[in-house]
Nucleic acid binder design. Sequence first.
DNA 1: TCATCTTGTATACAACGTATCAGTAGTAGA
DNA 2: TCTACTACTGATACGTTGTATACAAGATGA
Lengths: 268, 268
Amino acid sequence: MAARKDGPSLWERLERPTPTPRQTLSPRRIAATAVAVADAEGLDAITMRRLATELGVAPMAAYRYVSGKDDLLELMVDHVYAELELPSGTAGWRETLREIALSTRRLMLRHLWLAQLPAGATLALTPNRTAVSERSLAALAEQGVDPDTAMAVAATVSSYTGGMTGAEIAMRQVMAGQGWSDEEEVYTSLAPQLTYLLDTGRYPAFKRYIFEGRRKKDPDWQFETGLEYVLDGIAARMTSSPPMSPRDDAVRREDETGRQDRHETEGS
Amino acid sequence: MAARKDGPSLWERLERPTPTPRQTLSPRRIAATAVAVADAEGLDAITMRRLATELGVAPMAAYRYVSGKDDLLELMVDHVYAELELPSGTAGWRETLREIALSTRRLMLRHLWLAQLPAGATLALTPNRTAVSERSLAALAEQGVDPDTAMAVAATVSSYTGGMTGAEIAMRQVMAGQGWSDEEEVYTSLAPQLTYLLDTGRYPAFKRYIFEGRRKKDPDWQFETGLEYVLDGIAARMTSSPPMSPRDDAVRREDETGRQDRHETEGS
DNA sequence: TCATCTTGTATACAACGTATCAGTAGTAGA
DNA sequence: TCTACTACTGATACGTTGTATACAAGATGA
């Protein structure tokens, strides 16, 4: 502490690892690194300190770019939503919404930690997430659907998608933690909690599904079945009540919208 | 440290506050207390220490009853699901599923922290949560729906319900944090984040909703509209493909099922 | 050359979840 | 009535976490 104001000696200077090329950090790099860690080890591995070591930087360094951990999580969400491939644009509303739903599910399965986020964080209004909503709303507006209905429809599909996929991921992780195989010895190697529940006899219909369900191991079928229900229900209303003010001039062309020229956080 | 083995003196004994009536704790009391705190101050207020002081007990005391904080959260979830009023049983599947969805939404709005839980915890298989699934599955089985389809239907509705209500709660909290009033000065007092997004011009359909949406402040309408879509879509499939093996003997009566004689965590 | 801005670093702290162990009130045998 | 036992609660402590604050070193512009 004595030689503080004298500056470092020559030897100290020589020993200093690298003259730290400035600007080693950026929101992009931070997001990409955090996402890589979360993909590999789950959301619990995301720690400001862990992130710092992964970036090769002091624990507090990232705070120049994110105001705190919540910010970091938002950044991560936006970063991965840039991956989501949006349908090209000429298909009808139904095909558009369907493809967005399937893409979203694939995205969540690729980044399981998305399902571990508190419900609020998943819904944060980040640029790339908003682009997805925009695509859905635009497809509906093009059909002449009024804004309120369009939002209700889009919210319905995306709620279904998020909820269903979240449940699928939770189930997967329980099964992985339990070391289940792929076959039908479900009951014998059941999680103790579940065994207890079923044996109370209070859940016969649930039990029947566990024993007799054939599609238990087919999450694709489950997801797509439910998705068709939802889309069918929407379609019924769309055709029964004729579209209001089709080609309203307030409906912008969406060629100019969407994802080209995206926000900072992009690519991977 | 000297008089350790002599035991407390008479005066010490007299001074001891209460001779601690045994069994001050129980899972019920723990759950009820934790729920009360979370209801009043949000999930972040739930701390093992805070819980302990609220119970008037040492920080580690609760660990005799829950193995850790995750356990505590599960206990809380189960505790509040005991509140959920299940439909009485004679209505058709559609009315049953509809009422369960509405009840679930009301429950979540009463306990906003349910939406803050990581997606996995909300789906934990607790007795009272399973009772809700059971009720849906039973209503469908009674109609002769096979177990796989019944589960797909039930999962669809509950995914929709959880996702939609979670989004509603997140929105509410953003609005509350921003101090919005009830009227149409939406854009001027908009959250800065949202203002920025809209001004990029990349989200015209989204922007149109913000400016022209009439039902923005009507979450009941939004929820029920989407719910009808979902139920309509299910109904279409149910009638088009005739039920298989109606009154199959594997379909138990559900008079005996459901929620009477519930698990430990009950009431409030 | 010097002041200023930017960017990463060092240190520190309060709060958290929880392991461990000690104490103590009730119960059961003698 | 005494003693041993058991079930429960309390105290203490440790490692980790998010983050406030103050500082230093490279970059920049006069």
